[in-house]
Design a protein around this nucleic acid. Structure first.
Length: 414
RNA sequence: GCGGGUGUAGCUCAGUAGGUUAGAGCGCCAGAUUGUGGCUCUGGAGGUCGCCGGUUCGAAACCGGUCACUCGCCCCA
């Protein structure tokens, strides 16, 4: 408690950071709208069951990372650790199941009680899309293509790799899971401690263990492809064919499994090696059983989420805001005129900086510092004849301009 | 939750056989330039040396604890 510092794992977004985030959020919305996604905003907390039921009791997120609390009415609530469950809940409670497919774009803060690291915070921000009500591989293709487009639009696609895999449908996954449990069960003693635990909770995760001994075992483990049924195999083939057709590059990673219970068929991650241990920048997949698990109708879904902070670490060169016009009154007699002029130009759409205090030198200095393109200097002599000095701060040149026609004089600087 | 590293000015960092006024660069403020910015020069402000405790005549430095950040593990965006 206390002390004048933010809570562990939280950050202020100072204006410069906020601008990067804004750029990512706006770009995400703009691009996803081209794919027909519309913005949705859900509350940042839900009944705890919304996440517990969908993410899986055994998942790390549920078992140790949720910000859960009891409110004054005795309700068990949780700050959302991810967006998909909330969006699906909204789909059901909003009656949107009658109008499918439904396509949503969201952005906002998520909360996980974890040990902070680079690219990993307790309050972090995500953008994401969800496409609900389409069981066809075309949906997966579109969702991935949209994600790639957004990464491209913010200039980071070339620094990422798309890793792609399939978990198959429920039957395929069950069969494969059983095969894995049998195989690794036979080599139980050779497994790392972590993986012995995984064997109980989520055997698929053993496949991407970083332990040396585990990896040797994994090499000879049953292959997922041998357990995919025809439907699952065809589905995945359609997805890869679609990505090929669109020129979206990917790398098949048969060990790519996701931590959350609800995934099936397509899973993917856009990863980078520029962020240390937290290389995943955008990740998602198909979750056909999720809505039904929540108590809604059987509605398939596919989507992804991307970490804004992680993207922001990769983004370079966010455009600066529009350069303002500086208003510089000379002497107390021009103050009112300066206020009026600033107001007038702002209402005409200009960004205007008013220096507030100091002599001309100080105000011009401040004008330069905030990046002003031009300064309008309001001297009493000039005002008396309806004129101002218009100074080009880049060129260092200066001319007199008519006060009532300033908008025209400024036009060449826009 | 586990293991390692680091905390000195707004920022980036110097500063140890423990020794008395803790430094630099950048930034900030002021002046040279009271109707003209950037460049330059001069001056100035700004520090509980993360915090608490211990060792010592004496601690920014050594020890313990704690908080924060950071790297890795687990896991994830």
């Amino acid at each position: 408690m206390s002390k004048l510092q933010p809570v562990r794992g939280t950050h202020d977004l100072l204006p410069e950071d906020a601008r990067r985030h804004r750029h990512i959020v706006d770009t995400g919305l703009r691009v996803s709208q081209r794919y027909g996604f519309g913005e949705i905003e859900t509350p940042i907390f839900e009944f705890t069951d919304v996440f517990k039921r969908t993410l899986g009791e055994a998942s790390d997120v549920v078992s140790k990372e949720m910000y859960t609390f009891t409110d004054r009415g005795g309700e068990e609530l949780t700050l959302r650790p991810e967006g998909t469950a909330s969006v699906c809940r909204a789909l059901i409670t909003g009656g949107l199941t009658q109008n499918l497919p439904a396509k949503f774009y969201y952005q906002g803060p998520m909360f996980r009680y974890e040990r902070p690291q680079k690219g990993r915070m307790r309050q972090f921000h995500q953008i994401g899309i969800e496409l609900l009500g389409a069981a066809e591989p075309q949906a997966d293709i579109e969702v991935i293509a949209c994600g790639a487009d957004i990464l491209d639009a913010i200039g980071v696609l070339s620094r990422t790799t798309l890793e792609l895999n399939t978990l198959g449908d429920t039957d395929s996954r069950k069969a494969y899971r059983a095969a894995l449990v049998e195989y690794f069960g036979d080599h139980r003693d050779a497994l790392s401690e972590d993986s012995r635990r995984r064997l109980e909770l989520n055997p698929l995760r053993i496949l991407d263990s970083k332990d040396e001994g585990d990896r040797r075992l994994v090499e000879h483990a049953p292959s997922f492809d041998d357990y995919l049924n025809d439907y699952s195999r065809d589905f995945f083939a359609a997805v890869t064919a679609g990505l090929d057709a669109l020129g979206v590059g990917y790398h098949r990673n048969t060990r790519l499994v996701r931590g959350l219970d609800y995934y099936c068929h397509t899973t993917f991650e856009f990863v980078t090696d520029a962020l240390g241990a937290q290389g995943t920048v955008m990740a998602g997949g198909r979750y056909d059983g999720l809505v039904e698990t929540m108590g809604g109708p059987a509605i398939p879904g596919v989507g992804w989420a991307a970490g804004i902070e992680r993207l922001a670490l990769l983004v370079e060169g966010v455009a600066d805001p529009a350069r303002p016009v500086a208003i510089v009154p000379v002497g107390a007699g021009s103050e009112i005129e300066a206020l009026k002029l600033a107001h007038r130009l702002r209402r005409a759409g200009h960004a205007v900086e008013h220096g507030y205090s100091g002599n001309v030198g100080k105000r011009l200095k401040r004008a330069s510092k905030v990046g002003a393109r031009v300064a309008l200097i309001l001297g009493e002599d000039e005002l008396a004849r309806g004129a101002v000095q218009l100074r080009d701060l880049d060129a260092g040149t200066q001319d007199e301009a008519a006060l009532d026609r300033i908008e025209e004089s400024l036009a060449r600087f826009r």
